[in-house]
Design a protein around this nucleic acid. Structure first.
Lengths: 202, 202
DNA sequence: GTTAGCATGTAAGGAGTTACATGATTTT
DNA sequence: AAAATCATGTAACTCCTTACATGCTAAC
């Protein structure tokens, strides 16, 4: 019961955004829902507990605005903006989460968040996540296509329409992944040749 | 609040599939994940409890295969395929669920299932769901586009890439909805003129 | 006769939402 | 001074997954 697994996706998103700049919860949520707006949305009911937990783990610290010292305690506003910022541990944790290149990085719920912070991810890890995502989608395509081929007879037109739309959407995402992977590889090749002349620092 | 909300999506999918033909759980799950394979997947851990609940509500009945009467009880297999089939109440419930034309029908998680069974849905309800879905997506587009316009300066290239991909995916879905809506309207118009000559039933 | 796939189930728990409750600040 | 929006927080609940546990049936 002691070791929490943590709200993987939300935690990563929060740490990632706070890495760019300190923020308070309300703003964080807006940025979050802009960043991932097309894929998912979070409510305060999950954000604040997540912040609280991250605080408990020492990943972030509160930065409450200074009250002037001469104002009596009783009159100080009991509620004010709380700006959170990343600690060193938080940065470490963020880096760790970004380095995980397993299913946890390429499933539907998490892929978007991981991609959004690719700038902070090593090129090698990026490639593995992109390829993992691609094969995940291709598995799905294969299994649905196989099933479609098997059930040729029963054709409800709406069901078919939906499945075709789904197939096309996923095919489209695979093409996009191919483009991105292509660019990544080209980039990696360039970096490698540069490394040869410059002698790469790990 | 006495009325259960029920596992809306899964319940609908189960009733819808059982309406087409009786089936046992294992097969149901496979059909489910073919039907919605591109959008979501369900595990047995949610399917069986759902079936149990539907059984309790009298929406479906078990159809255990007949054991030959002369086999002693002790030897009868205690475990066999359980074929479920829809009851009259189940059909009513299915029809009710398919008639709901609110957010519950056009949100991300539920739209696919509702669409899949559009054959059993009245034309008027279909249109409202399709339009509801479309405006839901357009809201999302607007809000993300507005946010993008506001934060022009800060351009992380991966974040931007992700947001653009998301926008394009959703734009594509809107175009698809437009096509479907167009076809629906044409169909409705045809049906109306036919109704004039034939005097429509119910 | 043992692996692989078919088939049914349950307990514990994760990740999030909804609805509520409250306070502070800005706009009209 | 009212209304809108910014801001923080919690309790109860929902829907689903994971991991486990079991048994049957066909194929090798």
């Amino acid at each position: 019961m002691s070791s929490r697994k943590g709200a993987a996706v939300l935690e990563l998103a929060v740490l990632g955004l706070l890495h760019e700049s300190p923020m308070h919860g309300y703003e964080l949520r807006k940025r979050l829902n802009t960043l991932l707006g097309m894929f998912r949305a979070f409510s305060y009911g999950s954000l604040y507990p997540c912040l609280k937990q991250a605080l408990g783990k020492g990943l972030i610290v509160e930065d409450r605005p200074e009250e002037p010292a001469n104002v009596p305690l009783a009159l100080q506003s009991r509620r004010s903006k709380i700006v959170y910022k990343l600690t060193a541990e938080g940065k470490e944790r963020l880096e760790y989460l970004l380095t995980e290149a397993g299913p946890a990085a390429w499933e539907d719920e998490s892929f978007g968040v991981h991609f959004a912070f690719f700038s902070h991810t090593r090129a090698e890890v990026r490639l593995r996540i992109l390829e993992g995502r691609r094969s995940r989608l291709e598995e799905r395509l294969d299994s649905v296509r196989a099933a479609l081929a098997r059930t040729r007879e029963r054709v409800d037109s709406y069901t078919l329409e939906l499945q075709n739309h789904g197939l096309e959407s996923v095919e489209r995402e695979v093409r996009w992944l191919n483009e991105v992977i292509g660019r990544e590889r080209a980039q990696a090749a360039t970096d490698n040749t540069q490394d040869k002349s410059k002698e790469g620092p790990r």
